[in-house]
Design a protein around this nucleic acid. Structure first.
Length: 634
DNA sequence: AGCCCCTGTCATACC
DNA sequence: TCGGTATGACAGGGG
């Protein structure tokens, strides 16, 4: 009930904001509530690592992923099922508020109806923006009307940035045809402009003014906003109903309605979630650039675009393809603007650090070698030594412990200060060697960690990390003062491994241990892959057995049916033959005996009557005649 | 306690 | 020859 009232309030607020020129979209509050990020789960096993899933950062939907990756299949299957479930007509209350900012460019001058054919929507937009600008304290400047992050967190913020970029686009539209818009398609912009301008009226076209949305944002507290709304309502009091009736494009104009606007718009949760999702959006559209500037983050958040995509696809049912395309363009433009600046990057980095650690905890790997990168992450002290091919070489050996001829080291909790002995992993230098049947640990992390970020306090991370038991090889390596983690040792290329052996002047025991660790790690992965292949083979064989059994049953049924049909046909033929023969007469005028004659259909289509050959010709009389012939010869 | 499953490890063959 | 992979076998842990 509260949500219903809240939703209605949001709708009203949306209308008000739209009337003052603020593009507002409320959607998928519930969608955000049931965040797909929480529903995108991991695959059944995350054990098989070393896959370069960081390349996924450039593939929004994960296309091009290693075809053997079962986890991704599970991921996409889950996402597809999720979308299908959402399309079943469950009640959706679009309660998330995404603020769209309408911008007026002063340089273009008042956009009158001189050019109605090309810029009708633009005209309306400018009109509306001009109306909004009447209430702004500063004229002739760009006003960044970003109605604070309580209203526009994450994607909402993205929506605000979009409007900034839309300004640029509109400026371009003044000079160039619509078909020459920069990055986004013309359709997207036109649709966007149409959506923006549905509430505008040509009668209220003021002189064009630049609206500094940033300034507006700076003053975008509720008081100012309320004043704007009030003034605007006074102006358009009589037109509210019509405006509401025209406000059909709010929904379409939504950028990325990730659940950022919770019931407590100013609460920490909503802010956090919004920040996360803003990060998601940012990452989604700047995969390439981000990977250049922040490669580690790009690697660590290779799955974030999936989360965003999932959320977007979840909204596709209500928004259509336009919203998706719009999102694509919007994110690119947002990222090009770089409005967030270093603060955004810092926030994202901080978020990613927490995100990675949390995700790694959640993804408690069974196989150890693959997914343990967060537990202290012992790594080479010199990242340069590990170079670009080094991976997340942290290991957990949570499973069984086989015997070993070497000295076993019992895990000693908290004895070794990992922070000093094992520098943190540089994710930017991570390379996952692709062995078949690999899973994306990095890919999966955000999906799990995102919903957990606000659920558990961060102070729990430290003790968990410290209490984490080390694998035996890890303990051996540390006991031998080997400055590399097991995962590093295992995953580094052989050339690099040789260089490490040569350049560190290890003792023979250390070299032996290093080789053993590498061999065991490789073999561990191989065993995992082998077992998975075996299971897959068993599964495939079982499926084939079922298929063959079904085929056999079908063929047996067909055989029985065919035999039955053949019997019926033979009976009909026999009846027909009797009927025909009974109508025929021999040379003496007697009817033919159906038992002694039959009908033969020739190749030329002619039907002939042939006597039935008696097989038992060799009677006693015949034998007698043969004997007589022999006697005559003698 | 026994069973079953999972996992790590070793040995071995193969590439 | 060496490194890596594949796989059967064994052992241990855990449900």
């Amino acid at each position: 009930m509260q949500k219903k009232y809240f939703t209605e309030g949001l709708i009203q607020l949306t209308i008000f904001l739209s009337l003052v020129g603020v593009r507002v979209d409320i959607d998928s509050y519930l969608t955000g509530y049931y965040s797909p990020l929480a529903e995108i789960n991991l695959g059944p096993s995350s054990a098989y690592t070393q896959t370069p899933f960081h390349v996924l950062r450039d593939t929004l939907d994960g296309y091009g992923v290693h075809p053997k990756c079962p986890e991704l299949d599970y991921f996409f299957a889950s996402r597809r099922l999720l979308d299908e479930v959402r399309t079943l007509g469950s009640p959706r209350f679009h309660t998330q508020l995404n603020a769209w900012l309408v911008h007026q460019v002063s340089s273009t001058g008042p956009s009158t109806s001189n050019n109605p054919d090309t810029s009708a929507g633009l005209e309306s937009t400018e009109n509306e923006a001009g109306e909004a600008s009447e209430h702004l304290p500063v004229r002739g400047q760009d006003v960044h009307c970003q109605p604070n992050y309580e209203l526009a967190q994450g994607p909402c913020g993205a929506g605000a940035f979009l409007s900034e970029d839309e300004v640029t686009i509109k400026e371009e539209e003044e000079a160039v045809p619509l078909t020459q818009l920069a990055d986004s398609s013309t359709l997207e912009h036109e649709s966007l402009l149409e959506g923006i301008t549905t509430l505008s009226e040509p009668d209220h076209v003021p002189a064009a003014t630049d609206i500094n949305w940033n300034n507006l944002l700076s003053v975008a507290d509720l008081d100012v906003l309320d004043s704007l709304v009030t003034d605007r309502l006074l102006e358009l009091d009589s037109d509210i109903s019509s405006a509401i009736s025209q406000d059909v494009s709010l929904h379409d104009a939504m950028v990325a309605n990730v659940g950022a606007f919770g019931p407590a718009s100013g609460s920490v949760e909503s802010r956090t979630v919004g920040q996360q999702q803003r990060t998601l959006l940012w990452l989604e559209s700047t995969n390439s650039s981000l990977s250049d500037s922040l490669p580690g983050m790009a690697v660590g958040l290779a799955a974030l675009p999936f989360a965003s995509v999932c959320n977007l696809t979840g909204n596709m049912t209500s928004q259509g393809a336009l919203g998706d395309c719009l999102d694509e363009a919007v994110f690119d433009q947002i990222n090009q603007l770089g409005l967030e600046g270093l603060d955004t990057i810092d926030n994202q980095l901080n978020y990613l650090e927490c995100l990675d650690s949390r995700a790694f905890e959640d993804l408690d790997s069974d196989s150890g070698l693959s997914l343990e990168s967060s537990y202290g992450c012992p790594v080479s002290p010199g990242s340069s030594e590990m170079s670009s091919s080094s991976s997340l070489y942290c290991e957990e050996e949570g499973g069984a412990t086989g015997y070993s001829s070497e000295v076993d080291f019992k895990p000693s909790k908290g004895i070794i200060d990992r922070s000093t002995m094992w520098p943190p992993v540089d994710l930017s230098e991570s390379v996952w060697h692709d062995h078949s049947y690999s899973s994306p640990p990095l890919l999966s992390r955000p999906s799990l960690s995102l919903p957990c970020k606000t659920e558990e306090p961060e102070e729990d991370i430290g003790p968990q990390l410290e209490e984490r038991e080390l694998s035996r090889d890890e303990m051996r390596a540390r006991a031998m003062f080997i400055p590399f983690s097991v995962l590093q040792i295992v995953n580094m290329p052989v050339e690099e491994f040789m260089e490490v052996l040569d350049s560190h002047s290890f003792s023979p025991e250390q070299v032996t241990l290093l080789r053993d660790i590498r061999r065991r790690g490789k073999n561990k992965l191989a065993a995992q892959n082998c077992r998975k292949r075996k299971l897959d083979a068993i599964t495939g064989l079982e499926e084939e057995v079922e298929r063959l059994q079904a085929q056999r049953d079908r063929l047996l049924r067909e055989k029985r049916l065919t035999a039955k049909t053949m019997g019926a046909v033979a009976h009909q033929f026999k009846q027909l033959t009797r009927d025909v023969l009974s109508r025929l007469r021999d040379a003496s005028g007697r009817p033919l005996n159906p038992e002694r004659f039959t009908l033969q259909c020739g190749a030329n289509g002619r039907i002939a009557v042939q006597p039935i050959r008696q097989p038992a010709v060799t009677t006693s009389a015949g034998k007698k005649t043969d004997k007589r012939k022999k006697e005559k010869k003698q």
